[in-house]
Computed example of a mutant assay.
Amino acid sequence: MELFNEQGYDATSVADLTGRLGVTKSALYHHVDSKAQILQIALDEALGGLEEALATALDQPTAEDRLTAIVGGAVRVLTARQPQVTLLLRLRGNSEIEMNALARRRRFDHTVTELVREAQAEGLVRKDLDAGVATRLIFGMINSVVEWYRPDGAVDPDLLAREVIAVTLDGIRPRT
């Protein structure tokens, strides 16, 4: 995945992959059928993690709990699966695999937007905000983490999740 993120999926050849991994083509093909299968596995890991976080969030009792759970869960998925999520964020829809992944991502985004609307209806989120725009801004902040977060760095993933929750959710709460 790192090589796909460095060079782009389309620009990465099987020879590039085998060179980076230090294996022969036959050894690589013993484990996967194609470069496309590697992409599919990586995208399934990223999207699967986000979909699991969303399912957990949807099981929460209140709109506030659901929003808190999805924001924190998304940060934790990103920090745990950073190469895979980075690859997901850089998709352009150049293949059927990419188009399917983008469709899954859109479904995720639409569901989170509905969570924001529910929170607005309950008075937990400002009604003057567009729910779709608020969702994009929240996830813009979360997704930007791929550019600077380092798993071996000083920022603890749980602390990061709490701070993103505080910044995003406090910013969209009604003014008192």
Rank of each mutant, 00 (worst) to 15 (best):
L39V: 05
V133E: 08
K35N: 00
T111V: 08
I41C: 11
V32S: 04
L58Y: 00
K25A: 10
R105P: 07
D109N: 13
V145M: 01
K127S: 07
I41G: 10
A36T: 08
R126E: 00
L115E: 05
A131V: 00
E45M: 15
E122S: 10
L88D: 04
D44R: 02
G132N: 03
A69M: 05
A55W: 08
P157R: 02
T113A: 11
E45F: 12
I97C: 11
L91Y: 06
G72I: 09
A119Q: 05
A134I: 07
V32L: 10
N100P: 08
T24K: 08
V112Q: 08
G93H: 02
M141Y: 13
D156F: 06
G72T: 06
L67N: 03
T113I: 05
E147F: 04
Q84G: 01
A69V: 04
R105E: 12
R136P: 00
T111R: 09
V32I: 09
R104K: 14
G140P: 01
Q84T: 05
I41K: 09
Q37N: 04
Q120A: 01
L28P: 00
R90E: 13
F108H: 08
I70R: 09
R107Q: 15
V133Y: 11
L88M: 13
D109T: 15
D33I: 06
R90L: 06
Q37L: 02
S144Q: 08
E118L: 15
G132Q: 02
V77L: 03
E98A: 08
A27E: 07
N143Q: 10
D59R: 15
S95G: 06
I38K: 09
G93M: 05
R106K: 13
S95M: 08
L160W: 02
R90G: 09
L28Q: 00
E163P: 07
I70K: 07
V71P: 01
D33G: 11
T68N: 14
M141A: 15
S26I: 06
L137F: 07
K35H: 00
R20I: 03
L91M: 08
L137T: 07
Y29K: 02
D65F: 10
L89W: 15
P83Q: 11
L78N: 05
H110E: 15
R117W: 00
A103N: 15
R107S: 13
R150G: 07
G22W: 01
G153H: 02
Q60I: 05
V145C: 00
M141E: 11
D130Y: 04
I38T: 09
N100R: 14
E118D: 12
L21A: 12
V164H: 10
L88N: 09
V145F: 01
M99K: 14
Q84S: 10
S34G: 05
S26V: 10
A121E: 12
H30K: 10
K35P: 01
W148P: 06
E147T: 11
Y29I: 07
E96M: 07
E147H: 09
G49T: 00
T86L: 09
G140C: 04
L39T: 06
M141D: 13
V77Q: 04
D59N: 14
G22N: 01
T68Y: 12
M141K: 14
A80F: 04
V23T: 03
V133A: 13
L87Q: 12
R107C: 09
G140D: 04
N100A: 14
E98F: 13
L137N: 08
A154P: 15
T56P: 08
D59W: 12
D109W: 10
L159A: 13
V32A: 09
T68H: 13
A101Y: 11
S34N: 03
L129H: 04
